[in-house]
Design a protein around this nucleic acid. Structure first.
Length: 418
RNA sequence: GUGGAUGUAGCUCAGUCGGAUAGAGCACCAGGUUGUGGCCCUGGUGGUCGGGGGUUCAAGUCCCCUCAUCCACCCCA
């Protein structure tokens, strides 16, 4: 504590303390249950991979690869990277284990930490956690719609409200380059009206001009071409079908032609679910289709689609009612009672009852006071008299009522009152 | 990487114009009550005032640097 320099958690990381971890457990359990209902199965890949995996998968022009990766050399000189996202790992795993030759559907989910060297702020951390789901080998837009529906169901189940679903199509290798060219030309004509930042974006990433908050930029951007007007016939049909399925699910969404995913591999359908309660980092989850990644890694030509949920963001939005902890505090008086008490605690735990007992002698008043502060629902008193008679005092902390019970009846009384 | 705000006890925060042993509430520990919690009363533990340097007779207070946190840009979950 009073050492010269105390060691603190690394910038952008944080401890999830027990109270908070309880929320995470609830959210994760709910998500797993729902993912499994839709036929997804858990997959777990290593936390670090060959750096090349992300350079090729996430994309060498993406911000993530250019400036946000935790890359290091191991003792043999290999370049390794703490994963900044999960999709490339899954693709690698599928190829490595030839999972596409299995009869099982290629539907996976995953929960775990990711690492990006970003400047921390609200909803953004250097170690953060994502839940990912991915489907491979299904190109029908019905599956994209089903994914959005599943995400929607997850949020509703967790009682996350006031969210918006944004959808877009970023086109394919055929139509997107054409659009970008048109957009650049349109922006170039209005260069004088744009802020310095947006002038830079004209060449770097013209789609981002749409995000600018400067009024003159917004004004100018209104006249710019939209990707949705440039989709090729196939992409347009694909997008229309996707939207039609969402309509039949009666899921409302907003077509947002400005929705660009900052990862290079996306093709066609992309989507995001946002909440205004999150601040500047407003995406709870985001995803889309990546039809070319498997090929890029020398695997079969299998398409993929999926999304990633930001756990920190989701947990912060999910309302959480703390339930009373159903546990028993065992109060003992004297050495003999301590021995008896420890044996009793063991017995109760083996009968599936959470049980706490002190390790040093304290007054009964003190013990019951502690039981109260800790939130115990029951106190079992073990003193000399109880040991003699084999009957213990079982106190209900909420009502203050106290009954005398034998060892075998403790569990019974507690279960019956629940 | 750029910009702004904030750092005083475990938590929330006072601390005047630079002035004496750095405070409060909550929390924690003990006692008031030899075998019965919550309320109340009494006492106690806990701080190198984020760190370093400077100005000054004197710095929690003023100046510089640094670190951390928060917020925003960028980008994303």
């Amino acid at each position: 504590m009073s050492e010269k320099k105390r060691i603190a958690a690394i910038k952008g990381t944080k401890d999830i303390l027990p109270k908070e971890a309880r929320k995470w457990q609830r959210v994760e359990a709910t998500a797993k249950r729902i993912f499994e209902l839709y036929g997804y199965r858990e997959i777990r890949a290593p936390i670090f991979e060959a750096t090349e995996l992300f350079e090729k998968g996430t994309g060498e022009t993406s911000d993530i690869v250019i400036k946000e990766m935790y890359t290091f050399k191991d003792k043999a000189g290999r370049s390794l990277t703490l994963r900044p996202e999960y999709t490339p790992s899954i693709v690698r795993s599928i190829i490595e284990h030839r999972l596409y030759l299995q009869p099982d559907p290629l539907r996976f989910y995953f929960i775990g930490p990711m690492f990006r060297y970003d400047k921390p702020q609200k909803g953004r951390y250097r170690q953060f956690h994502q839940m990912d789901i991915e489907v491979f080998g299904e190109e029908a837009p019905a599956v994209d719609a089903e994914i959005v529906e599943m995400a929607d169901y997850l949020l509703k189940t967790l009682k996350v409200t006031e969210t918006e679903i944004l959808v877009n199509s970023v086109g394919c290798q055929g139509c997107r380059p054409l659009y970008l060219k048109e957009l650049r030309e349109a922006a170039e004509k209005k260069r004088a009206l744009l802020c310095p930042d947006c002038q830079r974006k004209i060449t770097a990433n013209p789609l981002r001009i749409f995000d600018c908050k400067v009024e003159t930029c917004r004004e100018a951007a209104r006249g710019f071409p939209k990707i949705t007007d440039f989709l090729c016939a196939e992409c347009e049909a694909n997008f229309d079908s996707f939207k039609a399925h969402l309509d039949s699910f009666q899921i409302s969404y907003i077509v947002e032609p400005r929705l660009v995913r900052g990862i290079d591999y996306y093709t066609r359908i992309t989507f995001e679910i946002i909440s205004a309660k999150l601040g500047a980092q407003d995406a709870i989850l985001g995803g889309g289709r990546y039809d070319d990644m498997m090929k890029v890694f020398g695997g079969p030509d299998i398409c993929g689609t999926g999304f990633a949920v930001g756990m920190e963001r989701l947990v912060s939005l999910a309302p959480f009612t703390r339930e009373a902890e159903d546990f028993l505090y065992l109060a003992f008086l004297g050495d003999e009672a301590q021995e008896k008490g420890m044996a009793l605690a063991r017995f109760l735990r083996q009968n599936d009852l959470e049980c706490l007992i002190e390790y040093k002698e304290r007054s009964l008043r003190n013990q019951i006071s502690r039981a109260n502060k800790l939130g115990a629902r029951w106190v079992l008193i073990v003193g000399e008299e109880e040991i003699k008679s084999g009957k213990y005092q079982l106190k209900n902390m909420a009502t203050g009522n106290q009954v005398e019970v034998g060892k075998e009846d403790i569990i019974k009384v507690i279960r019956e009152s629940a």
